[in-house]
């Protein structure tokens, strides 16, 4: 029971950001779940290891929300896998997530900067 709640909490904490990260990854073409994990792992300089317990619920939720669409395809190594593709509403969502995230970074940045400057002084 605690385990499950733990997952839930983590999803909630990451939700906005997680969706944005997944959608961002899908912008360069359809990928399967494992591919998304690998891509984020590589793109973050091996800093981010996405939890499957967050990834799959998020993918299925976004599919229900219409932001991604899925289809079964063969990988290069002949493995059948479910590929996710970003949709037009998904792209719109990504844009708005991005601008919100940008705003957030700016706001937090402007708050944090004076402190650091003051520390230097």
């Amino acid at each position: 029971m605690i385990g499950r709640n733990g997952y839930k909490n983590r999803i909630e904490l990451l939700q906005g950001t997680l969706d944005m990260l997944i959608l961002q990854t899908l912008q360069w073409g359809p990928r399967h779940g494992y591919g998304i994990v690998q891509a984020l792992h590589a793109d973050s300089g091996e800093a981010l290891q996405l939890e499957t317990g967050s990834l799959y619920p998020a993918l299925h939720r976004m599919e229900r929300q219409g932001w991604v669409r899925s289809e079964w395809k063969q990988t290069e190594s002949n493995q059948r896998a479910k590929y996710y593709r970003i949709t037009a509403p998904g792209k719109k969502q990504l844009a708005s997530d991005l601008s919100r995230w940008q705003q957030m970074v700016d706001v937090i940045g402007s708050i944090m900067r004076p402190v650091r400057e003051g520390g230097e002084a």
Binding site: G33, G35, T52, Y56, A81, K82
Partner: peptide
């Protein structure tokens, strides 16, 4: 069943890598 297969595929690819 689809979800089962999706997760199996994930594991298979990971193992293969």
């Amino acid at each position: 069943a689809e979800l089962d297969e999706e997760i199996q595929a994930h594991l298979q690819m990971d193992i293969q890598d």
